[in-house]
Computed example of a mutant assay.
Amino acid sequence: MQQLQHRVEQCFLLSEQYFKQPFARPEIVLSQRLSKVAGSANLSQWRLRFNAHFYAQDCEDFLRHTVPHEVAHLICHALYGRVKPHGKEWQSIMLKVFNCPPHTTHRYSLSEMPMKSFTYQCACQQHQLGIRRHNKVLQGAQYCCKQCRQRLIFQHNS
């Protein structure tokens, strides 16, 4: 956690030097919750959440790319307000301030993550849906098979 906090601080110092203005420091959370995202920036609560699983998977890459990615979201919001999450303002911060390629997705392996899945059936096959889509079904969303175009029906937890 100390390395993570140090890297966040470095990113904020680079931002302050580049934009010649101070920025409030965010709350930093190292989340143990299983998720496919490497990190997230909560703009309204000024919080950075990082995925502990991906951090442990490749600490060096995480500190070099993921941390600046999320800090750039906060800096972008502080400077420009509500803009596209990975728009030209964010991309500019990634390139000019952090000297990082503005990639919008991570390349960490999802294969080692024990994800809960839910089995659904259509007319032609079974489908595995993740927790997010399953919860949307519980709220009324419907998903259809791309092959037979039939609605997916919940069968059981996997």
Rank of each mutant, 00 (worst) to 15 (best):
F23S: 04
L48K: 01
A141Y: 13
K20V: 13
K88L: 14
S35H: 07
Q21V: 02
Y120A: 03
C100R: 08
E89L: 03
R107G: 14
W90I: 03
L110Q: 15
W90M: 03
Q150K: 10
G140Y: 07
L79N: 00
P22F: 05
I131C: 12
T104R: 15
Y108S: 03
R49K: 10
H77M: 11
H65W: 06
C11Q: 09
C148M: 09
N99E: 13
A123D: 13
E27W: 00
F50Q: 03
Y108R: 03
H156T: 07
S40Y: 10
I131L: 15
L4W: 08
L63H: 09
A41S: 14
L14V: 01
G87L: 01
K96L: 12
H106Q: 07
P114W: 04
Q121T: 07
F12R: 00
L74M: 06
S31F: 05
K136F: 13
V8I: 08
H65P: 01
P102Q: 02
Q21L: 04
T105N: 11
L95S: 11
V137S: 11
H69V: 05
L110S: 14
S40D: 10
V67S: 06
Q57A: 11
Q32R: 13
R25T: 00
A41V: 11
R82M: 13
L34H: 09
Q126C: 11
E89F: 05
Q5W: 06
F62E: 02
V37E: 05
Y143Q: 02
A78C: 11
E60K: 14
H134D: 01
S117A: 06
L4H: 07
A56V: 07
R64E: 08
I28K: 00
I28T: 01
R107A: 13
C11Y: 09
Q10T: 11
E16R: 06
F19N: 06
H127E: 02
E89N: 05
E89A: 04
H77V: 08
L63V: 12
L95G: 08
E60V: 13
Q150S: 12
Q21K: 08
